[in-house]
Design a binder for these strands. Sequence first.
DNA 1: AGATCCTATGCAACTCAGTTGCAAAGTTTA
DNA 2: TAAACTTTGCAACTGAGTTGCATAGGATCT
Lengths: 140, 140
Amino acid sequence: MNKQTTDVEEILQKKGVKPTAVRMNVLNFLLDQEKAVSLKDIESVLSRMDRSSIFRTLKSFEEHKLIHSIDDGTGMTKYAVCAEGCNCELEDLHYHFYCISCEKTFCLMDHPISTIELPKNFKMIHANMVIKGLCDKCNK
Amino acid sequence: MNKQTTDVEEILQKKGVKPTAVRMNVLNFLLDQEKAVSLKDIESVLSRMDRSSIFRTLKSFEEHKLIHSIDDGTGMTKYAVCAEGCNCELEDLHYHFYCISCEKTFCLMDHPISTIELPKNFKMIHANMVIKGLCDKCNK
DNA sequence: AGATCCTATGCAACTCAGTTGCAAAGTTTA
DNA sequence: TAAACTTTGCAACTGAGTTGCATAGGATCT
Ligand SMILES: [Mn+2]
Ligand SMILES: [Mn+2]
Ligand SMILES: [Zn+2]
Ligand SMILES: [Zn+2]
């Protein structure tokens, strides 16, 4: 735990999510990570809590723009806490990186998705951009 | 059918896949499409053929670089025939577009994935880039 | 041709992440 | 306190994808 209970409570309040035990635990865990995590990852750590409760918590967090989800192609959706000031709009989108060796999925916060030229009349609303390869620790 | 049986047979031969009935039918269907299709799409058209046979056919096609797969976030993998000369290498990667209105997934062949700046020592090997929004026909 | 071998196919069963219905527990409101 | 609403846990279900296995279909050898 790298955050005080009160911090987590505040964050939830601010985003309009009622701070319950499950929610505080899930958010606390998410804030601890340097990589994006799956429902299963959370489940195995917060083993006292039910899968569906964690699932619904994640859905709720996503709706309230507290976290964003990443489809990294592994078949398990990953979740990561949104950056300060993120509103989950086009300008907040960033690339994600999946390491095929250590199997970690990273948010590349410093790599925003620049405007992409599209065919005439196509309109971009959202995007899921995943680069796969080797992370710095696995690239020897 | 927009291709003669012999054409399809030739393509399979050239890519090192033995041309069987299932394979020729699947390839024929794939060549007909202007959008990427799912296993289910193929199944519902080639209803005489078994799902697992089509599934294994797609896997085989992918291994032999006849088609490439796209994870567009819908939960159903889409497949599209590779362009002439495609070797499924980095330089062959291109953006994909998923229309949230008509639910079609397109290959943006004219939009190759340019080299993306990555954090120090990260190495890109592959990528799945999906832009979501409205296609020209749905964007009114 | 007939026997043998290898591959492709169809069928059924299974996996597994995600999702939902429902009742019990907990919280807020009147 | 009682009623109303929300959250949680449990169990059952969904659906795409995947696999084992027996049969069918071709190719190859004698
Ligand atoms: Mn991210
Ligand atoms: Mn494509
Ligand atoms: Zn790694
Ligand atoms: Zn459309």
